[in-house]
Design a binder for these strands. Structure first.
Lengths: 339, 339
DNA sequence: GTGAAAGCGCTAACAC
DNA sequence: GTGTTAGCGCTTTCAC
């Protein structure tokens, strides 16, 4: 009862795919142990045998059976990855995923996606933008596996590692920039989510306003809010607070989405109304005018999470290690041309 | 030499995490066989024992060890997923991934990401927008695993399953729509990639032009081209062919990206220049004016790929099965208001 | 309806 | 430097 036509050159019998360790051992005239050691570079074997073994392995198209290895070592060489399920931020999350995938590949790890509850067997977990009110996240946090979060986690339990960016400094810099460009009362369209990133932005904004004697103009929109909602939030803001001379949008893509609304309110972006985003993206670059934004370097972020997780798994990084990714403001026409 | 602190309630000894089948058997006072059968609902066991076993399993926090199961059955309950690495189309691909993840979870499958060569052990492969000139794709195609592609594959080898959408009909409909709205010579800004989707669009466009006695105005931009490139392509088109009264952009996001260029050429989108996209996205909805586009339903597409793959793995769908996802044009202001 | 035993492919003691 | 042996946790004959 074969399952699937095998493709391997030899070994016509066989439960699935390629040759086994035993086949290689037989082929090379040595023991399984020797093959195992030779293949993994354990210094026991002589150079001659090693070469012979490597050769036979290649000839036979040998691929180690990872299930067998996992069973024996209880190491899966797999990291599980969880991402919040929002279309908003698609570009950020996609880049993040590629960063994770790339670095994982470099480290010889597989990446498996965690959707609902089902925790796949993995050596560690990466949680991107973990939101404490997400039950899946909470469950993953105490699955008993080492966890690295991208951005801090505000819920129960401490992850073994955290990689985060200094959004406080970045937003402060952005607000200072707006001020330097002549804006006196910047408003914040915040993302209404429990992600630490979003909360930090709100806190920073409040602090900055207090520090500069500016009346805060905070409006919230649900994370992942559709454009119409964002537009109406901005529309109301502009109607109720006509003095507003600058708007900072927290959510990825939001700044671009509200451009039309700003315009239809008779304001000119980059002139009498400065506009900026806390998340850079293609949409910011292609908007008209291009929108000043903070480049969060998601790909790098993803890679750093893997690196940290590897360090923790290898016992090199102590649990509780915190890493950072530097982020930068990219100034564009939407915040004026420097007067 | 314990590896990691175990979390399971009992079983303080143990190589990794949770209780084993043997533990449950011991706890319930039956044999491993019985436990195995009870847990998987194989009709051998009596209702009483089944209940008892289920109970003990729950009490012990038993989780089957997938490596052991895989080793025994050579079934991994895992599908590998490959996605072209382009930021362009991030939204499409992200939705696709979520569609895959969701449906896989429903079917009890794990999803693992394929980056570079490293083919993870999986029961099957899903290739999203496979491009024949991508060596990774080519390699995956003959890894000896059942493959389902999202969109047809133009390279060597036949996938076991294909899910595709009728882009020919959709684009034809779109071109007809433009014509109905008064455009006489629509241009196509094509995506220069070997993805079947892109080639189909070009072919369809050529055919439509021939059929309507229209001179084709085809321009190509690399897939994933940055906005500036797209802008310059459109800029040149408009300069060289001032008669152009409609532009269709193939690539995801491109139509939104070229809006400024169109405007700076003194044209008014939706009035003397109609604009449409072959891929719908947030950017199309939020553009100013909103852009007519084809909704490719990527999430559904992802789910369908998993469904088909499951069917093939289960032997229900024959190899060579072809599925389709219906797609629809969404008319918006960028193609005029109906005269 | 249930159990005993074999073995999937691999690695890690422990010999020699 | 190399081989032998004993499992990892599970499913699957085959007996009863």
């Amino acid at each position: 009862m074969r399952r699937v036509a095998a493709r391997s050159p030899r070994k016509p019998a066989g439960s699935g795919a390629s040759a086994t360790l035993a086949d290689v051992a037989r082929g090379a005239g040595v023991s399984k142990t020797t093959v195992s050691d030779a293949l993994r570079g354990h210094g026991r074997v002589s150079d001659a045998t090693r070469r012979a073994v490597l050769d036979t392995a290649r000839r036979l198209g040998y691929t180690p059976n990872r299930s067998a290895r996992s069973l024996r070592t209880s190491v899966t060489d797999t990291v599980a990855l969880h991402i919040p399920e929002f279309l908003t931020g698609a570009e950020y999350y996609m880049s993040f995923v590629f960063g994770v995938a790339e670095q994982a590949a470099r480290a010889g790890l597989n990446v498996t996606l965690v959707s609902s509850g089902r925790l796949p067997q993995a050596d560690g977990l990466i949680l991107c933008d973990p939101m404490p009110d997400n039950p899946v996240v909470a469950e993953l946090m105490d699955a008993g596996l080492p966890v690295v979060t991208a951005e801090r986690y505000g819920g129960e339990g401490r992850p073994a590692g955290v990689v985060w960016s200094d959004h406080e400094t970045a937003l402060t810099e952005l607000l200072d920039h707006l001020r330097a460009r002549g804006a006196r009362g910047p408003a914040l369209i915040a993302s209404d989510t429990t992600a630490d990133w979003a909360l930090t932005l709100q806190r920073t904004y409040a602090r900055w306003c207090a520090g500069h004697g500016v009346r805060p103009l905070l409006r919230k929109a649900p994370f992942g809010a559709p454009p119409e909602v964002l537009r109406s939030v901005v529309g109301e803001l502009l109607a109720e607070e006509p003095e507003t001379d600058a708007i900072v949008c927290a959510a990825d893509g939001a700044a671009a989405a509200v451009l039309p609304e700003i315009r239809s309110a008779g304001r000119v972006v980059g002139e009498d109304l400065l506009l900026a985003s806390c998340v850079d993206s293609l949409a910011m670059r292609t908007a008209e005018p291009p929108i000043t934004a903070i480049d969060l370097r998601p790909r790098h972020m993803g890679a750093e999470c893997v690196r940290l997780l590897c360090g923790i798994l290898a016992g090199e990084a102590p649990s509780g290690t915190i890493g950072t990714v530097a982020i930068d403001m990219v100034v564009r026409a939407s915040t004026g041309s420097g007067r």
